[in-house]
């Protein structure tokens, strides 16, 4: 579970952490990804596991479009940039929820049979559900890929540089909008991946994103903004804390542990565990 939180958070870490843009519609991105996965299964009988790259591609386009249509303008705001970002993406989240209700109806949906659904695997006497395991695997791969991407490729450097100083970046011939649009696409694609895997074992409904979004923010902040590794570590910690809290407290209180740990961490380290900003 922790690695899954990590996977949801990693897309956010890219958008929120590396580009310093607040995306309050992150949970809704996840929701869309789950629906895409569901419909690919329902109409074309493509197993969520196979369709995951398709979902990621769809979300990539979606993320880039959202950037170009909305966020680009929000970032241009001279005053109250933070609030404008919060509320324009929050408005977007409401629209997306409304659209989902309109087209998909508020019914709960699930993918009844998939290759992985309900299967378990026994490792050294511990039974682990397969979908979660695959999710964890994908999550590790995604993190490794992203880490490499940010630190070792030109694009990654361009992204960091653009956040640091858009003006200087323009001087050396990098188009700020292109870099950020790609960044948003990438962030959304990662959420797409998470959504595709989660579609296997979570109910899908228009408000599903909201319950995961806050945990994703907490995960990113816990790890510290500006650090991909931080989001990864944050995800693992959040997952563990949730599991432990669920043992000690009633299940309905399981998130309290996560929140408490976040508060504790930032009181001791006001920039998160590995944050640079």
């Amino acid at each position: 579970m922790g690695l899954l939180y990590g996977l949801i958070a990693v897309g956010l870490a890219l958008i929120f952490g590396l580009m310093d843009v607040v995306n309050f519609a992150h949970g809704e991105f996840l929701m869309i990804a789950m629906y895409v996965s569901f419909f690919l299964f329902a109409f074309f009988a493509i197993d969520p596991l196979l369709s995951a790259p398709l979902v990621a591609a769809a979300l990539f386009v979606f993320g880039a479009v959202v950037y170009l249509l909305i966020v680009r303008f929000a970032m241009r705001a001279k005053a109250n940039a933070g609030m404008v970002q919060i509320f324009s993406t929050f408005g977007l989240a409401i629209v997306m929820r409304g659209l989902a209700q309109f087209f998909f109806t508020p019914d709960y949906r699930s993918i009844p049979q998939s290759w992985l659904g309900g299967k378990t695997i026994s490792v050294a006497g511990i039974f682990l559900p397969e979908p979660q395991l695959i999710g964890a695997l994908v999550s590790i791969l995604a993190f490794a890929g992203l880490y490499f991407f940010i630190n070792r490729t030109d694009f990654g450097r361009a992204l960091e540089a653009t956040r640091e100083d858009p003006g200087a970046v323009a001087l050396v011939g990098i188009d700020k909008n292109r870099v950020f649009a790609l960044g948003w696409g990438l962030g959304a694609a990662l959420v797409g991946l998470a959504g595709a895997i989660m579609a296997v074992f979570f109910y899908i409904y228009p408000d599903v994103g909201a319950s995961f979004a806050l945990i994703a923010y907490v995960t990113v902040a816990l790890g510290g903004f500006g650090s991909v590794f931080g989001a990864f570590a944050g995800g693992i910690i959040v997952g563990l804390v949730e599991a432990v809290t669920a043992l000690v407290l009633p299940p309905s209180l399981k998130s309290v542990g996560i929140y408490a740990v976040y508060l504790l961490v930032v009181f001791i380290r006001p920039r998160g565990l590995f944050g640079s900003m």
């Binding site: 909305i70 929000a74 001279k78 408005g91 409304g98």
Partner: peptide, 21 residues
């Protein structure tokens, strides 16, 4: 019950916050 109100409301919020920061 199909969320049209949400669509309209959300769109207005996006537009106002972008147009008048």
């Amino acid at each position: 019950g199909r969320g049209v109100d949400l669509i309209v409301y959300g769109t207005l919020i996006v537009l106002i916050s972008l147009a008048l920061p």
